[in-house]
Design a protein around this nucleic acid. Structure first.
Lengths: 229, 229
DNA sequence: CCTTGTGAAGCTGTTCACAGCC
DNA sequence: GGCTGTGAACAGCTTCACAAGG
C-alpha cells in the first residue's frame, strides 16, 4: 500500500507511523478491553488481554510498544488508561461520519448494522442512483441522489465512503467520492477501483473469503492425508 | 493460523501447500481472467493480467509458480487454460454449499447477494433461533430452526458455515457448527470464536475495517504533514 | 518476584534481476 | 526479441528470550 507519506522522522515527537499489522489489531484490543472493563476488571497482564483478544502476549506487548509505554512492570496495564490511549491513537475519541453508496441488500444491512455506533462510526448518509430508492427512508435517513453526493458529503462532514454497488458501478462511484474530497473508501463491490495517491481504499470481498475457505476445505477432504512413502 | 497439517513432503507429487497470501489472491486472478475472456482475449502476458488484478507482475508470476508452470516463455498465458488450472486448484470446479446462521439484516443480505453463484458458492440453507423467523421464506429458501442444524447440514451436504448472529451468540453457534461436522467457518460477528484444531475460521469485521480507515484519515487530516526540522 | 518493553532471531511475503526457453 | 520462472536480496511481521524496572 505505502500510502503513508513517510515523514522520515522529524526531530521531535514520537516516531510516527505504526505498522499496518498493528493498526489492524488495535480495534481488537479495544474491544477486549471493553469486555474486561464490563466484567469489572481494572488491571490486567498482557497474558489475559492477549488471550481475550486471541493473540499471543508477546505480539500484544510489541504492538503496544509502538504507541508508547503504558504498563507497569510486575503489574500489568490499567484497563481504563490503556483503553483511552488506544482509543486516542486510532481516533476513537471522535465519531467518524460515513456515507454508503448503493442501498441494495448490503447497503441496507450496513445502514442497520448495530455494531458501528459503539465503535465511533456513524452512518450519516445514504446515496443511490435508482430513482425508486431516492427519497426512501431507511431508519432515520433518507436516501439521497448520487448526483447530490458532493452536497451531501460537504453538508454532513463525511470523511469515509462505503461502496456497496454492483461491480460495474464501483469505479464511477469511487471517482465521484474522490471528487467530493473523500480520501478513505471501503469497497464491497467485487471490482478493483483505482484512485489517486493519498486516497486509501480497503476492500472486503465476501465471495473471496468463502473461496479461501473452500480451498482449505478441498485440501482437508480431498486428499485424505496421503502420507505415502 | 498453521492449520495446514504439514504433510512434510511425501516423496511423490508436487510439494503441497500454497502460501496463504497466494491463496488469497487466486480468486482475484480468476476474476481478472474471466474479465479478459469476456473481452475476447485468449492470450495474455503477466503484465496485463497483473494490471487487471491490481498486483505487480513479478508477484503474479511467483504466485502462479506455486501451482505449476502454465505459461509459455516469450508469449504469455493462455487465458482459458490458466483459468481452468487456477479454478481447479482452489476447488472452483465444484460448487460449495453454505449455511448462514442468523437471518438478520446481514444474513438476509448475504443470502440475496448475487456475487456468490458465479464463484462456486451456493447458499444452501438458512438457520435462525427466532421462532418468528423460522419457516419464513427468503428467496427460494425456508429458514430452519437452529435446533435442526445437524439435520440441515447433513441433508444438504454443507461444508461451510457463515455466522451472521449477534456477538453473544457467535461462540455457541460455532460450537454447534463444529458438532455438525463443519470445518470451515466465516464469522461476521464481532467476537472471537475458538474452535478445535483442524477447523478453519475466517473473520470479517465490518467495524474494524472502518476503524482502520478512520485511523489513516486522522493521520492525514490531523497533523498537516509536520515536516519540521 | 513478576511482568513489561525490546533487541535479536526467525519466518513469510515481496521485489528484483536475470537465466532459461520459446 | 520477449516473456516466463526463479534464485537471491530485501522488507515487514512474529516470536523468543531476557534485561530493566516496578
Amino acid at each position: 500500500m505505502t500510502l503513508i507519506h513517510t515523514i522520515e522522522n522529524s526531530s521531535r515527537s514520537v516516531q510516527r507511523s505504526i505498522p499496518d499489522a498493528t493498526v489492524a489489531r488495535l480495534p481488537i484490543y479495544l474491544r477486549a478491553l471493553k469486555s474486561l472493563a464490563e466484567q469489572g476488571i481494572t488491571t490486567c497482564a498482557s497474558q489475559e488481554l492477549a488471550q481475550s483478544a486471541g493473540v499471543n502476549p508477546a505480539k500484544l506487548r510489541k504492538d503496544l510498544s509502538h504507541l508508547g509505554s503504558f504498563g507497569t512492570r510486575g503489574v500489568g496495564y490499567d484497563v481504563e488508561y490503556l483503553r483511552y490511549q488506544i482509543a486516542r491513537e486510532i481516533g476513537q475519541t471522535q465519531d467518524w461520519d460515513v456515507v454508503i453508496i448503493g442501498v441494495g441488500n448490503l447497503g441496507e444491512a450496513l445502514s442497520n448494522y448495530g455494531g458501528f455506533s459503539t465503535r465511533g462510526i456513524r452512518i450519516a448518509a445514504l446515496v443511490d442512483v435508482d430513482p425508486q430508492r431516492i427519497g426512501q427512508k431507511i431508519g432515520a435517513l433518507t436516501v439521497a441522489a448520487l448526483d447530490d453526493l458532493e452536497t451531501v458529503v460537504a453538508a454532513s462532514n463525511i470523511s469515509i465512503g462505503i461502496i456497496a454497488t454492483p461491480a460495474e458501478a464501483a469505479q464511477g462511484v469511487a471517482d465521484r467520492l474522490v471528487e467530493s474530497g473523500i480520501t478513505s473508501i471501503l469497497n464491497f463491490a467485487p471490482a478493483l477501483v483505482s484512485v489517486p495517491d493519498g486516497v486509501d481504499v480497503r476492500k472486503v470481498d465476501l465471495a473471496i473469503e468463502l473461496q479461501i475457505l473452500a480451498y482449505h476445505e478441498q485440501r482437508k477432504s480431498g486428499e485424505p492425508t496421503v502420507v505415502n512413502v
